[in-house]
Each structure stands twice: as structure tokens, then as C-alpha cells.
């Protein structure tokens, strides 16, 4: 369809008002939108809304133990954040394995989330942090915000719980508890410019060999990024030893439902799942 309107809101309120007319495509960094529209995988709607000028959607802050990352914050901003490097290094690590320098400079965190790829690289560490996304809408002539757990945000490949007239404004999560260790792995062999065959994050607090607050998130092994709850349950409160690792690996193997595609077979994705959970537990548990 031909674009009939082009709008450049400078505030969330303006953007959400624009969205109420429906039929709008949101443009942030453009790194996913451009190839999707040129290849025909995605069609432009009647209105193109460029949200790049909404300054209140940028930046990384912490307030009263809650972190907030504006939706337009770029992956480079995350990579270069001293705050995150000190307090939530797993996010910085994932950002370091995200595409290329040029794409990191343009891609927004909200864009990576809204694209809802099962292999979205930034999603995995955010799932470890039990992150929520904040969605701005417009009800009865006024701005209305709602929060939704990131894990519930994804409903399928490329599909989210966000309504067509909503805007993902920020990502929030609580400061990790004392001793919380989170690690991320992504398939190679390239360090970053790869669409993950499998990506995985494991987080836990380890005290005298016993794990608590265990979280396992896996990408590219199901229609959406997943939290491996059964695997977490196997590990929670248990002494991490070789047999527990075996048990966790077996549980993770049961929780994933990978497919064959041009990048990898289901077999290899399952295999990598087993390799990664062992490696990550080895790091997190030490």
C-alpha cells in the first residue's frame, strides 16, 4: 500500500494519539523494517510513524531498585552503558553478540523485542531478568499505560500481545538480588553477525553449591523465545552436581521444540541446547 501520511511525534502522547487512527507502521531504527518491507515480507500501512524523535523513550536509568530502559535505546547504548556493565553485565554481553557495529548503532531495544523473532538476541537476557514491557495506549481520550511480562508478550513468530494502537515505550526489571549471576551463550562461529541457531541464558544465585532463583531462557528452539520452567524447577534449591546437570540437560531437551530450517536441523538445535546448558551451569554454578 502507498503511504499516505508520515508523522514524527515528539512525545509518547503524540505518538499514541497518532496510532489511534489505526493502519500505522511504526518506524524506529529501521534495521528490521527495511529488509522486511523491501523483500515484501511486510507491507507498509497507510501511516508511517517515525518515533525516533521521542526523547523520553531513550536512556537507561535505575530508580528505587527498578531499571528502566527506554524503548528507543540502541543496542550500542546498552553495550556502552557503564551502569549496566557494573550491575547487569549479561545485557551488555548479549549486546556485544548482537549483529554488527552498524546495526547495533541503529537498532532499538523495543524494535528487537517487537520484531518477536524466536532468535532475538536481546530477549534472552531480559527474560533472565524477569523483565516487563510497558505499553502505552489511549483509552477514553487519555494516555493509558499497561505492563506485561516479557515472556507473555510473545505469541508466535513475529507476533506479540501488543495491539495495533499501542506503543512499547520501555523495558523495566528489578535489580538482580545479591549474588545473582547470569550468563549468555549464542551459536557461532561468528562472534555476533549470526542469526542464532540457539541462544541461551542461565541465571541463578549459588550458595555453597545450591542454586536458587534459577532462570533458564532459550532462543530459536520454539515459536517464541522460552523460559524453560521445568528445567528451572529441576535446578531450584538443589545442590549442583554432575547428576543434577545431567537431569537439567535432559529436562531442557524435553522443553525445546526446535525445527529444521536452512540454518540448522532440529537435531543440532537440541544438541546445542544440551551443550549450552551444561556450559552455562558450569559458569553460573561456580
Amino acid at each position: 500500500m502507498n503511504i499516505e501520511n508520515y508523522e514524527v511525534p515528539v512525545s509518547i502522547v503524540e505518538a499514541v494519539q497518532s496510532l489511534q487512527h489505526g493502519d500505522a507502521t511504526i518506524l524506529a531504527g529501521g534495521t528490521d523494517l527495511t529488509p522486511q518491507t523491501t523483500s515484501g515480507a511486510k507491507e507498509f500501512l497507510r501511516t508511517l510513524i517515525n518515533i525516533q524523535h521521542i526523547e523520553e523513550m531513550r536512556g537507561i536509568s535505575v530508580d528505587d531498585g527498578r531499571y528502566r530502559i527506554g524503548g528507543l535505546t540502541t543496542v550500542t547504548d546498552i553495550l556502552e552503558s557503564a551502569l549496566l556493565a557494573a550491575e547487569v553485565p549479561v545485557l551488555v554481553d548479549a549486546a556485544d553478540h548482537f549483529a554488527s557495529s552498524q546495526i547495533r548503532n541503529a537498532a532499538s531495544l523495543a524494535g528487537n523485542i517487537c520484531n518477536a523473532s524466536p532468535a532475538g538476541d536481546m530477549i534472552i537476557p531480559l527474560l533472565l531478568l524477569d523483565a516487563e514491557v510497558e505499553l502505552a495506549g489511549w483509552i477514553d481520550g487519555t494516555l493509558s499505560m499497561r505492563s506485561i511480562a516479557l515472556i507473555d508478550f510473545f505469541t508466535g513468530p513475529g507476533k506479540t500481545a501488543m495491539q495495533g494502537n499501542e506503543l512499547l515505550t520501555s523495558i523495566v526489571f528489578a535489580a538482580p538480588v545479591e549474588g545473582f549471576r547470569a550468563e549468555f551463550l549464542k551459536s557461532g562461529p561468528r562472534p555476533a553477525l549470526e542469526i542464532s541457531m540457539v541462544s541461551m541464558g542461565v541465571a541463578a544465585v549459588q550458595k555453597e553449591g545450591v542454586l536458587s532463583n534459577v532462570r533458564v531462557a532459550i532462543g530459536a528452539v520454539a515459536p517464541t523465545p522460552i523460559r524453560a520452567r521445568a528445567t528451572e524447577a529441576v535446578l531450584e534449591g538443589q545442590l549442583l552436581d554432575e547428576s543434577l546437570v545431567d537431569e537439567a540437560a535432559a529436562a531442557a531437551g524435553r522443553e525445546v521444540s526446535p525445527i529444521d530450517d536452512v540454518r540448522a536441523s532440529a537435531w543440532y538445535r537440541s544438541h546445542l541446547t544440551g551443550v549450552y546448558i551444561r556450559r552455562l551451569l558450569n559458569v553460573v554454578g561456580n
Binding site: S187, P189, M197, A264, S265, W267, Y268, H271, L272
Partner: peptide, 10 residues
């Protein structure tokens, strides 16, 4: 490829 090598080792 990584998959081919992993499969052969497996």
C-alpha cells in the same frame, strides 16, 4: 559446518 562436525562426533 559446526553441525556437521558435531553430528560426526556424536
Amino acid at each position: 559446518t559446526p553441525e556437521k562436525v558435531a553430528r560426526a562426533l556424536h
